[in-house]
Write a protein that binds this DNA or RNA. Structure first.
Lengths: 258, 258
DNA sequence: GCCCGGACTTCCACTGGGCGGGAGGAGCGC
DNA sequence: GCGCTCCTCCCGCCCAGTGGAAGTCCGGGC
């Protein structure tokens, strides 16, 4: 018996959502007790809520008792604007780009202080690449990141400059130098990196812009990852630009104005 | 005043989920009152729950007041097994396949009585195609559908045979004929269609199998869509088979046994 | 400018759905 | 068999959730 005692004021909904929050890419399959612990929910409560979520199809219970994200959430996720408005539109362009240059191709947006990878195309032979669709990488150490950072609001830039974490020995961690690089990116309209995120990988990226009444807005970054010894990178800039412009134009057409 | 009166016995969680259910591909952006109506929730209740869902990031509220699916649900959806265990693994193979044959390439699984499209790759020039990632099409009118149906449990086959809806004038709607076609698919290990789903498109598909203790299990179907006048389709079967086998082998390695 | 209608937001008293400790069961390793 | 962990079920208390009503905001017609 005894009524509630812990965390008063937590709504039912927030508890249910906390349970969903227990899942992340490092833990996509969880047992009841793991979920209860990770979400800070009493075991019994977690059990009941999990039952409801599983009935609806948000989660599925595997035969070994562990829970996974269900198809219904997968479906819903596909309705998010990143998918519906950006990824869908951009995919064929990335496709063509990949066919042409045969390296790994990326599309990313800025999500707070990270680059969020929205799409990635790579054959089975290309350079090993860290990013996956849905993963987040630092803005200062990747090509797409630098492009996104170069067009981010001042306060974001300042915050990022204050925390330039070293990823490899080539990572730019000096705020002054990064500031100059960003200016360079704005001027040249593309960014490069060489082994700044992971050894053995260089990258090249350009902005994807949409025209608004107030002028062009950078909505995403398009990038490629190549082996660092490739010396002809700048030659690829126009190829990326053509694709980026295509995406931008298509976005302007598709996107429900505003 | 006055307590609840409508639908007693509905849990809070089920109401919140009903609200998410209001969103689908034909209605990915909704106003408060639309959501209230579509979910059968009183306006006020919908309003409160939407607030909670938006705070958490399941939904986002646009500046025009309408709600959309938020990034957090997109993220969660990426953790679903279809994505993590199937799509991720299969993508490079589809990629290679597309590069080789240059037509639209598909990967689908059976979801109840439909084929659920998990991945699609097409350049910008190929045949116009109905399917999109996340969309569902009938099992009896598509190549991947027939492959999936051919290996489905008996009761699924019977149910589908009872409701062969006509999509075009070439759709097979005779249960007897479909039954023979399925036997043929099982024997030959591939399926064909020609303008049975949409005019101007033919398709070819093969099963993707994973070896289990109990023998091989069909977990997905791999297909291509081509113009109907192409007469060399059977020549492409081995190409599809190689890719399908590659996916199957990789799945067996990756997939957490069971 | 004014009025009207529709869509959204805030308020608040009542009450039944949610809560979670505890008991009991299932499965497993030793 | 025994102890351990993990899961499921039970049940009475009580506060979070509920939703009608009233208030506010906005845009468009006249």
């Amino acid at each position: 018996m005894a009524g509630r005692s812990s965390t008063p004021g937590r709504s039912v909904t927030s508890r249910a959502l906390a349970i969903l929050d227990a899942f992340d890419s490092s833990a996509p399959r969880l047992t009841l007790s793991e979920i209860a612990e990770r979400s800070g929910t009493p075991l019994t409560t977690a059990h009941r809520l999990l039952g409801e979520l599983a009935d609806w199809g948000a989660l599925i219970r595997r035969s070994d008792g562990r829970y996974e994200i269900g198809r219904k959430l997968w479906d819903l996720g596909l309705l998010a604007p990143v998918q519906l408005e950006l990824r869908q539109v951009a995919a064929p362009f990335l496709q063509d780009l990949h066919t042409t240059i045969r390296d790994t191709v990326h599309l990313a947006v800025r999500d707070g202080f990270s680059a969020l990878y929205v799409e990635r195309i790579s054959g089975r032979e290309s350079v090993p690449v860290v990013s996956q669709v849905g993963s987040r990488l630092p803005l200062h150490a990747t090509g797409v990141g630098k492009v996104l950072l170069a067009s981010a609001p001042l306060e974001v830039v300042e915050q990022v400059l204050r925390s330039l974490t070293r990823q490899t020995r080539h990572t730019v961690v000096d705020p002054g130098r990064m500031r100059r690089e960003l200016a360079e990116v704005r001027r040249r309209r593309y960014a490069r990196t060489s082994e700044e995120m992971s050894p053995g990988a260089a990258s090249l990226a350009v902005p994807v812009q949409v025209e608004r009444r107030s002028g062009p807005v950078v909505v995403a970054a398009l990038g490629i990852v190549v082996p660092p010894h490739r010396r002809d990178l700048p030659r690829l800039v126009p190829v990326l630009e053509v694709a980026a412009r295509g995406i931008g134009r298509e976005l302007a057409r598709t996107r429900d104005f505003r």
